[in-house]
Nucleic acid binder design. Structure first.
Lengths: 202, 202
DNA sequence: TAAATAACAAACTAGTTGGTCTGTCAAACC
DNA sequence: GGTTTGACAGACCAACTAGTTTGTTATTTA
């Protein structure tokens, strides 16, 4: 089975997932239209409902197979290599800030977008989303615990609380930038975030 | 014209606005259904389109006449009385935390909800929303400037940056709580927020 | 008090939306 | 090489949705 075969079900499914992810990122799950996905993939209803039983099933698959791996790969797994949380975290945020462009700033964080929209509306979405946040939180908590063990982080800080606060603050900053169409808000708040992180050093 | 008159156009309009605000808070603007508003107000299409030219016009009116006054009254105006930003801010957050219940924690901040959903989708929404954030930001900045003037706030802090960071952090914390269905996340992150605010004291 | 107008009621419409159904063709299987 | 099955194509449908239109009644105004 070559990649150029007339029929490549795995690729077809992935194309639907990728387009749906982009559409959800921009318009939200409620704003996502099955017809629009078909238009953008040049597929038909037959193809779509062969791969997904419903729009909700597509939403679940986007979370499990696109959003979750993206968050884990970009934000969670790197934390597990952290030994100097303050230095490594600031480095991580610096790199992320350089990579970010205006479009991404305007669309926001896909995980947070979906959280704000769907948590109160659909329990099946909420549980999937919460599990991702928890993985992120646990990895960040562990990083600070290692930092305390090796004496680089103040002993009086609570790793669990700090992890909650930092994730909330980062998402809050990104969220604010969605309406301010320039990135000054990002850098202004970012400067304080950096100060706070540095204040955690032993 | 008594309040019990058969026809009270001002009250009718306000009832539509209030119900629409609650619906948007729960389901978002895209999830808001005109028919649902009519059902909840026991009104008809004729009444609705007499008072509002479109669903979008309703959205604008909800922002201008319900959301904006609510934010200004509860979060912006009080800042103008602040003389000791650290003490007053912590007091303000303590009161807000006591007033908040599980339902509000689950629905999140109406201003932030609308920001995340509508900023990338409708410029007419974005400009209205951004203006509200800016009023909040300006009032908080001014409070810290007064704090520096009277010597209660460290001279090396940037009031503008701190205001951006604090609003982002507060909204981020509330946003996180939307998927975690308990309020421990709120208190855990809140403890760090309190520490940060106190670190601004001269 | 009569005319004008504001404040509705309610049936109707046109376009949209998620989902179904039947059929077709390619690819794996025996 | 014929058969089965998976991977689609595309017409169709019922429910929904914002918005329109026409009519009616209460309220204001001349």
């Amino acid at each position: 089975m070559s990649a150029t075969a007339l029929r490549n079900p795995d690729l077809t499914r992935q194309r639907i997932l990728d387009v749906a992810f982009e559409e959800i990122l921009l318009k939200g799950y409620q704003g996502l239209r099955v017809d629009q996905v078909l238009k953008m993939t040049a597929l038909t209803k037959g193809a779509f409902y062969h791969h997904f039983s419903s729009k909700q099933a597509l939403g679940h698959a986007v979370i499990d197979e696109v959003l979750k791996p993206w968050i884990l790969d970009k934000w969670v797994e790197p934390l597990k290599q952290f030994n100097d949380p303050v230095k490594d975290l600031i480095e991580m945020l610096t790199v992320a800030r350089e990579e970010i462009n205006m479009t991404e700033l305007h669309t926001g964080c896909p995980l947070n977008n979906l959280t704000q929209e769907m948590s109160p509306l659909d329990e099946s979405f909420r549980v999937r989303i919460t599990a991702i946040w928890q993985l992120w939180h646990d990895a960040l908590t562990a990083a600070f615990e290692r930092g305390q063990a090796n004496g680089l982080i103040r002993q009086d800080v609570n790793p669990n609380n700090v992890a909650r606060f930092l994730i909330a603050a980062m998402e809050g900053i990104i969220g604010q930038c969605k309406c301010y169409m320039n990135d000054t808000a990002f850098d202004e708040a970012g400067a304080c975030l950096k100060d706070y992180i540095e204040s955690l050093s032993a």
